[in-house]
Design a binder for these strands. Sequence first.
DNA 1: TCCTAATTAGTACGATCGTTCGTACTAACT
DNA 2: AGTTAGTACGAACGATCGTACTAATTAGGA
Lengths: 195, 195
Amino acid sequence: MDGERTKRLILETAVRLATIEGLDGLSIGKLSNATDVSKSGVYAHFDSKEDLQLATVDTARQLFIDVVVMPALDVHGLGRLSALCESFLSYVENRTLPGGCFFAAAAAELGGRPGPLKERVRANQSDWIRLLTEASEEAVRRGELRADTDVAVLVFELNALVVSANTGFVLHEDPAILSRARIAVARALAAAAPA
Amino acid sequence: MDGERTKRLILETAVRLATIEGLDGLSIGKLSNATDVSKSGVYAHFDSKEDLQLATVDTARQLFIDVVVMPALDVHGLGRLSALCESFLSYVENRTLPGGCFFAAAAAELGGRPGPLKERVRANQSDWIRLLTEASEEAVRRGELRADTDVAVLVFELNALVVSANTGFVLHEDPAILSRARIAVARALAAAAPA
DNA sequence: TCCTAATTAGTACGATCGTTCGTACTAACT
DNA sequence: AGTTAGTACGAACGATCGTACTAATTAGGA
């Protein structure tokens, strides 16, 4: 009953902390300080640090779905595709998380480190790519994008643009980067528009 | 001087290690193990861990210049622009470093962490962006790209594509990602070609 | 060849890491 | 009222962290 609220507090703090310290740099002690829960009180909710990290990824996934994915689901096809990109860029611009997109940071951190943690992050990244892919395919079916569109390349392009906007914005704190990203996204979509 | 050779060994190992453990996850103990130099032997070459990290960034910079930048400098304008992208992608594809591009990892890791280390990484990233920008501007002057090309957006696009290819390739170990990146780079350049 | 300086090894420190334990306190159910 | 489950606590563990010393080794110039 009450434990569930504490656990949520811990995990939400963990998500925020992990975007600046990294999923590995996140330590039980720092989490204890940031939440005013004792070190053992933090640890009591998880079997191991890896368990905590996995739970943190799941929490970040839910946040991502809430603020990026859901708002774009009430439109379809090309509209959804561009809405997904835009809500991602807003999610970065609004500083929803202090270190920018959780999964962008996690993917870069865990890239070369095999294990269940990398697998979970990769699964989430694949879901995101699949979401973009399905929206693109529907846009093609609807005739909003050219029939000969190379969907895999288009999705790669769009994802690259928004993720790179995240990294650049966090590193340089320059909002001009988000403008460039928006222009580039619009151009990528326009380039695939039917004649 | 034998010390200089040991120092180089340490730093080259540090660059390799940092691409998988992160610049912060890199510890003196692990470096000692990986180099068969005693812990204090490692530490003797640096004033502090931060000093070691800064020197590691500088070493990675030199590597990047050697394998990515230099090979592209004997062509000019559009040729140089596309050569820079291609040598970056090769540098990723050849697994020059086990965790992919050093600076892509470092930028993601240090994004939200102010300090001299972040500043040094940002400076290197800015140099890379400037290199792409100058090549683009020359391509415009030469008439190889349209006169109304938005260079800042084009450079943002190209950088996003190659960096995202790095992250994706390291995360998924799927060479198809590099193919998509090459197609996307070619298209971005083609889109800016004169009528 | 001896001296001196540069280079590496050895050892130890306080702090923090992940983890385990025993123990209170609280709320619910019997 | 007594038992049980849930919840959080403080203390302590071995290991490793960055860092600071001193001692041994090595190398180069006289």
